[in-house]
Design a protein around this nucleic acid. Structure first.
Lengths: 231, 231
DNA sequence: TGCTGTTGTCATAAACTCGTCATATAGTCC
DNA sequence: GGACTATATGACGAGTTTATGACAACAGCA
């Protein structure tokens, strides 16, 4: 997601401004609402990618808006992060039960909040969690690192993306063109034999840890990632 | 996967109940265990599709069960999500290195957890689709794989397509010309005796697993695929 | 600017596939 | 059985698909 849109529903203007500043600095588009009703309207009309919702709002409380959002077919999938001053667990459980996706207590650091937001957005993007584990390999999407049996394996950017794609679709065969579309991006014009070379580079990196067998050639069809340990 | 079975290993009954409720609402079958030993037994006997494992368990800690699971041949492929209250990275790294497939910190929202569970399950049977099963053979188009009693059988592209066609039309007899049209494609000009050779090659591949009898010669008519185990 | 690392392409080697043929074997009809 | 036909099987070589190393263009960075 390039520039996600975040809806901020918060009555205290000081906090709202701080939030806007933080989010905009992080290249996000911000929509502001000072109360639940405004928030509801904005959510409906703008379909934001994520909603930051204050627990305590004048008039209609945040939880009410939350439950309203969560029963609406078009809005129910928008992740919501609740902001609250009360740190007691009752709140947390209640909020979660209403369908909040995360929960941040005030005061919070901009970095913490951004991290939570990014985590949620990332998960939305393609179901990519922080980490993908397959066999002896562990790929960390956050730190962009691959480890095999705990040892770090160095990969170039392209190889990393290729492997990431493979690990998101274990056992599935992809033609070179599919890989080009998915990993390189459609518009790019590249010779499809280039894939072979990158597969080679990926395999060579895995070779040092005996994992090259995880990437298999399906002659006539393409390539496949599959956890096959040679015995 | 229609109704996946999830094994929950968690000592705090309140959390366990919350989990069960959430999972069941999402049409999953739940198995409950209050400690590591129970979890181990249930895993062995029920072979769940996924395991939710608390980091902190009375007596044997969760990580111990995790490592035990990951060395057992039948259980090592079951994905495990660790639940933990401690959010520090040390824990995460340790858990991942033990082979956990994902990691969720308490408190977590039901939706978050479900999303992670679904992501893992989806990833697991991503490569499984359009499967044709016949007798001891199993042909998976998505992963481009033929397995007999679970062992992978290597086939050339043409043999794969030929077998695929046969398995789509079990018990039916095809003339050589029909096979040429269907598997090779019309326009192609090939000697129809070529079929014999490919049948031979296919049979040879199946021979190693005692399945060559699945392909029968109908003298004067052609060939047929039919599950006939020699006994 | 020079350095380092990445990336796409190419040429060549290597591996594999596939159609055909020659011959062996099996089935059928008299 | 003998003659004839249909199928099985092994071998071969042309053709195709992959693997691999080398290289030049290029980007990021000190």
């Amino acid at each position: 997601m390039s520039t996600p849109t975040i809806l901020v529903v918060e009555d205290e203007s000081a906090i709202r401004e701080m939030l806007c500043f933080t989010l905009q600095a992080a290249e996000m588009t911000v929509l502001e609402a000072g109360n639940a009703e405004q928030g509801w309207q904005l959510a409906l009309t703008s379909m934001p990618d994520l909603i930051l919702l204050d627990w305590m709002l004048p008039g209609v409380p945040g939880v009410s808006l939350l439950s309203r959002l969560k029963v609406h077919d078009k809005l129910k999938h928008i992740p919501v992060i609740m902001l609250t001053a009360r740190a007691d667990e009752v709140d947390q459980l209640q909020g979660f039960d209403m369908g909040a996706d995360d929960y941040v207590t005030k005061p919070f650091s901009p970095r913490t909040l951004l991290a939570r937001i990014r985590a949620l957005l990332r998960r939305l993007d393609d179901g990519v969690g922080e980490v993908i584990v397959a066999g002896r390999m562990r790929l960390d999407n956050t730190s962009h690192r691959l480890t095999i049996d705990g040892d770090e394996v160095k990969l170039g950017p392209k190889e990393f993306r290729l492997l990431q794609f493979f690990m998101l679709h274990i056992n599935r065969v992809f033609t070179r063109n599919q890989l080009l579309d998915e990993v390189w991006g459609d518009r790019v014009v590249v010779e499809d034999r280039t894939i072979d070379v990158h597969i080679r580079r990926l395999r060579r990196a895995l070779e040092e840890h005996g994992c090259e067998s995880y990437i298999q050639t399906i002659r006539g069809s393409g390539y496949r990632f599959s956890v096959i340990d040679p015995d």
